[in-house]
Simulated assay, not measured.
Amino acid sequence: MLKKFREWFAMNRAALNKAEGQSWPTTLANRVHLSTAVMRLEDDQAFQWFVATDEDIPDIVRIQELSYNGSAPWNKKALEHEINHNTRALYLIVRDQERPLAFIGAWFVEEEAHITNIAVVPAERNKGIALRLMKEMMQLAQKEDMVKVSLEVRVSNVAAQHLYRKLGFKDGKVKKEYYAGDHEDALEMSLLLRKRDSYEPH
């Protein structure tokens, strides 16, 4: 997953530099507000969710370890940079009391919200947590005037693809041998939130 982030970063470096050079009132993470204070699922379960801070990094690492057979593609150092220094990054974390359950990360750059990672611990899957996280990130992207939301997903991850299509994402190209380690292909998917502003020439 870190490989896909690096590739996306390289493709959008110019746009990112432009965005970083602009004068924003505050960082993205400090500026946004969640739609509700509590995440409520269809079965009436309720969990706490927050915009992640530096204090949440160990728990985000732990969620990854539980989700990816003991590995954390986004390690502590990478997450520290994301949360403490990347003003265009946004991470949300879900908890049951103090127990971390899930998180989602994204970059908002040049009218595009790119989902960098989303994970739910195995014991809490199939409850609608990932769906709520995606919907919230999409709403925040709209509030920030993003034009589209994009992501990559393993070609074998049929369940995730089904979730994204349910939200309106469309299939894009397949990136061959995209993932580090097993070299599995990745499917690009994207959702258009609105049409880009167009200006008629005078």
Rank of each mutant, 00 (worst) to 15 (best):
Tyr68Gly: 02
Asn69Cys: 04
Asn69Ala: 06
Asn75Glu: 05
Lys76Arg: 14
Asn84Glu: 05
Arg88His: 14
Arg88Gln: 11
Ala89Ile: 10
Tyr91Val: 09
Leu92Tyr: 00
Leu92Asn: 01
Leu92Ser: 00
Ile93Lys: 13
Gln97Ser: 11
Arg99Tyr: 11
Pro100Arg: 01
Leu101Ile: 05
Ala102His: 12
Ala102Tyr: 10
Phe103Tyr: 11
Phe103Cys: 03
Phe103His: 05
Ile104Leu: 09
Gly105Val: 13
Ala106Trp: 03
Phe108Gly: 02
Glu110Lys: 12
Glu111Ala: 14
Glu112Leu: 08
Glu112Phe: 14
Glu112Cys: 09
Ala113Val: 07
His114Glu: 02
Ile115Met: 10
Ile115Trp: 15
Thr116Gln: 12
Ala119Cys: 15
Val120Asn: 08
Val121Met: 15
Pro122Gly: 03
Ala123Thr: 10
Ala123Glu: 13
Arg125Ser: 01
Asn126Tyr: 03
Arg132Met: 13
Arg132Trp: 06
Leu133Cys: 06
Met134Ala: 00
Lys135Arg: 14
Lys135Gln: 15
Lys135Met: 08
Met137Ala: 03
Gln139His: 14
Leu140Glu: 04
Ala141Cys: 03
Glu144Asn: 14
Asp145Lys: 15
Met146Pro: 00
Val147His: 10
Val149Asp: 01
Leu151Gln: 08
Val155His: 04
Ser156Trp: 04
Asn157Arg: 04
Val158Asn: 07
Val158Trp: 08
Val158His: 15
Ala159Asn: 05
Ala159Pro: 07
Ala160Asp: 06
Ala160Gln: 06
His162Pro: 02
Tyr164Glu: 07
Arg165Pro: 06
Phe169Arg: 02
Lys170Tyr: 03
Lys170His: 05
Asp171Ala: 15
Lys176Met: 13
Lys176Ser: 10
Glu177Asn: 11
Tyr178Ala: 11
Tyr179Asn: 07
His183Ile: 09
His183Thr: 10
Asp185His: 09
Ala186Glu: 03
Ala186Arg: 02
Ser190Met: 03
Leu191Pro: 07
Leu191His: 04
Leu193Trp: 01
Leu193Pro: 01
Leu193His: 00
Arg196Val: 04
Asp197Ser: 15
